[in-house]
Amino acid sequence: MKPIDAIPIRPAPASDVAGNAPALLHEIAAALDTLLRTGREYCIDLSALPLSPADRDLLREALGTGEVRVDLDTLGNSHIEETGVPGVWWVCHRSEDGVLLTESLAICRVPEIIPAHPADIAMGLQGLQERMASREPGGH
């Protein structure tokens, strides 16, 4: 079977007009202001919005690249990076097949998925103590 790229007919590009990105930038600015004043977090689900390639380019350009990049390896890859605007995180969750599940902009200090959860810490501690105990018979 031919790969899909080998089929000579393809639909025209959706649009080269960045019609939605400017509105999104205003929304991001408002959310950042709220975060600063009240600590309330916000999230914009990019996968639910009809964004043209030009919209995406404009968003990327306006937000820039920041200092933090995080890759989670759980149920497939998740890539989280802080944009050049501190507090604005570009979050991409992918499936084990590499399919994009959701793409969002999280406006927060740190996305909730990054810090270790108390339940996982407790389980980790238990495992560590068991390993310590097995290395040092009689000791805890």
């Binding site: 916000y42 759980t74 969750h93 969002s104 999280a106 959860h117 996982d120």
Partner: peptide, 22 residues
């Protein structure tokens, strides 16, 4: 054998699917 983070990711992906707020 999946972590709490995997669970959160599952919920985030599903919430996005459902167009729910964070």
């Amino acid at each position: 054998g999946l972590s709490r983070r995997a669970f959160l990711k599952f919920c985030a992906a599903t919430a996005s699917l459902l167009a729910l707020p964070p």
